[in-house]
Design a protein around this nucleic acid. Structure first.
Length: 576
RNA sequence: CGGGGUGUAGCUCAGCCUGGCAGAGCGCCUGGUUUGGGGCCAGGAGGUCCCGCGUUCGAAUCGCGGCACCCCGACCA
């Protein structure tokens, strides 16, 4: 317990208006409440008040990670580049990796994540199956030269991540480590007051097997999530599976070239020829790691670029530029896999399973009817690369999927043995055989969580902190002239009993008008506001007002602290 | 990196089109008044008008170049 913080001392500047560039509610409130001060794109300073919230979030994370059996460690943020070359990710991360050189011209990177370094540590410590399983975690600064930082604390270039890594002897025991981390995450988000849904996710640049994200659903989110109202299936759009509308049945008919003057888009061609979009074949051109790729997909579907990238095993995927299109002789609007040579043709299963499709003729203003895979063209690679959209049928239960926007708060995934093999994390099993550890990794963005807490816990007047993360428990507003003995005595009594009850106080002792103090109290959002004033004392005590509900009562000075502490305990219990 | 926008006092912005003393509100400092929802009065401090070059007698204003920040897309906690 600390002595009360007095606002005369607290270095804080609340703003009546937020800067125009801040658009997200959390960004605006972080600035208005004076919790952060921007330094540069994706970089923020935390003020004393803001830092208290960060520390509270980290406290919850540590408590729950420890409870799950994980052990805290601390790794350097500065990494010898060799480690990253060893894992192959120096190239993979590309310009996102901040690089620097020391005085001896040795190259380093600022860690964007810590699989490499934790693997190094584990390789030095893990020797036997008796050492396993073990989960290590840290709360540490990450550096990523993001192409576009955004949304205040949503995407930063320097941020704090709680990252955990599990080491197991087998995929089976990895399941248990993964489940333990998963359960810890649910407790963490619940306690912090951020509603999240776990969704199936793509494992991204880090690679691996099962992968789930904890997503905070909000319209201002940057990810698209597909949810099934029927069976509860939830997945990131990058990963989401669905059941495309089945193709029209039929027997393969002879190919027929038709004149389609000026018709280029699927909609135009389909309408012109009197067929449905699903009876057409769409051609899309990409460059995968610089090499041209021809993609064929049914006309009513769209390409999921993440799935395509995975199917190709490509590192980078970009739309093919017009010049390359011309050079390769591709006819945009009438392109077709029929007769395409010199580049791989990746086909979605929808394109290979359908019969008698309308495809381009590789000749302007002409299309082909009755094109069939296997007979008329051959895919070099068939995969499911279609993008799930709202209204598509759920793969599991057939219900129409819904889409929502969301922000990724945490990510858990099963890495497998990839890093262990590359970085030498081996153990000896019971038979004395040398085997790679099976790894999992688990991350939470701390600042992003702070932003999400505000997104989920605010109203028109300001922030309404959940008890667990509030910088202070009680905001005491003192009203009355300095020489008012009754107010002074009541304040002293409340402070004394609050200390006994374990409450942290922020006392507004500034020489400001009551209006300013109340506005600031609402903006800063402590769970309870206590007003010590002549008017309240006349009515028999102090005013105790709950920020979240607006519920307000006059409570005798002597019992107010105990009552607040009881409400706090109750709320904390309910939140766990 | 592509598209859009912004850059003037600590904050919100006006002034720019049509070149001519650097402005308002809020905040800050001093004094007074007021004390239950950003109250009132008086006085005051505070400026690289993002930077550079150019046009001009004269540039916040016009032109060219650059930088920074924000928003939308491709990437991630």
């Amino acid at each position: 317990m600390e002595s009360p913080m007095r606002m005369r001392q607290l270095l804080i500047k609340t703003l009546r208006e937020a800067p125009a560039e801040a658009e997200l509610p959390s960004h605006r409130l972080l600035l208005r409440a004076g919790l952060v001060v921007p330094l540069a794109a994706g970089l923020y300073c935390f003020t004393p008040l803001g830092w208290r919230v960060v520390r509270n979030i980290e406290r919850i994370i540590r408590e729950e990670m420890n409870r799950s059996g994980a052990q805290e460690v601390h790794l350097p943020a500065l990494h010898p580049i060799e480690l990253w070359e060893q894992s192959g990710r120096a190239a993979l991360m590309g310009p996102t990796l901040f690089r620097l050189t020391d005085r001896k011209e040795r190259e380093f990177a600022l860690g964007p994540t810590h699989e490499e370094v934790i693997s190094y540590l584990a390789s030095r410590l893990v020797q036997s199956y008796r050492d396993l399983p073990v989960t290590l975690y840290q709360v540490q600064t990450k550096f990523r030269d993001e192409p576009r930082p955004r949304g205040g604390l949503i995407r930063l270039r320097e941020f704090t991540m709680k990252d955990a890594y599990s080491f197991d002897t087998s995929w089976e025991t990895l399941d248990a480590s993964y489940d333990a981390a998963f359960a810890a995450y649910q407790r963490i988000f619940r306690r912090a007051g951020v509603p999240v849904v776990p969704v199936a996710a793509d494992s991204g640049a880090i690679g691996g097997k099962d992968s789930q994200e904890f997503v905070f659903l909000t319209e201002s989110g940057e990810d698209t999530i597909l949810l099934c109202p029927g069976c509860g299936y939830a997945a990131n759009a990058e990963k989401a599976e669905f059941q495309p509308v089945p193709p029209l049945p039929g027997e393969p008919a002879p190919v027929e070239k038709v004149h389609t003057p000026g018709k280029k888009t699927i909609a135009e061609v389909a309408a012109f020829l009197g067929v449905e979009p699903r009876q057409t074949l769409k051609a899309v051109f990409y460059k995968a790691d610089g090499r041209p790729v021809f993609v064929a997909i049914r006309g009513d579907l769209e390409v999921n670029e993440v799935k395509l990238k995975n199917a190709l095993g490509a590192r980078e995927l970009e739309p093919m530029d017009d010049e390359t299109v011309r050079r390769l002789g591709l006819v945009a609007g009438s392109a077709s896999p029929v007769g395409v040579t010199g580049m791989p043709v990746v086909a979605d299963t929808s394109a290979t399973e359908a019969v008698n499709l309308v495809a381009g003729a590789n000749e302007a203003d002409f299309h082909l009817r009755n094109v069939n895979h296997g007979r008329d063209w051959q895919a070099t690679n068939v995969a499911e690369i279609a993008l799930a959209r709202a209204g598509d049928a759920c793969r599991k239960c057939g219900s129409a999927l819904e889409t929502r926007r969301g922000i990724e708060m945490g990510h858990v995934f099963k890495l497998g043995t990839l890093y262990a093999e590359k970085l030498g994390v081996y153990y000896l099993d019971e038979a004395g055989e040398r085997r790679p550890c099976v790894m999992g990794c688990y991350g939470i963005g701390v600042e992003r969580m702070l932003a999400a807490i505000i997104e989920a816990n605010h109203d028109a007047d300001g922030i309404a902190w959940p008890w667990e993360v509030a910088p202070f428990d009680v905001h005491v507003v003192v009203i009355g002239t300095a020489g008012d003995d009754a107010v002074g005595a009541a304040l002293a009594e409340f402070e004394a009993t609050a200390a006994g009850a374990g409450l942290d106080l922020l006392v507004d002792d500034r020489d400001e008008s009551p209006g300013i103090k109340f506005k600031d109290a609402d903006l800063l959002g402590m769970p309870v506001r206590v007003t010590v004033s002549p008017r309240a004392l006349e009515r028999g005590g102090v005013e105790v007002r709950h920020r979240r509900t607006g519920e307000s009562n006059i409570v005798p000075v002597g019992t107010a602290a105990a009552a607040i502490a009881a409400a706090r305990s109750e709320a904390l219990e309910a939140g766990r």
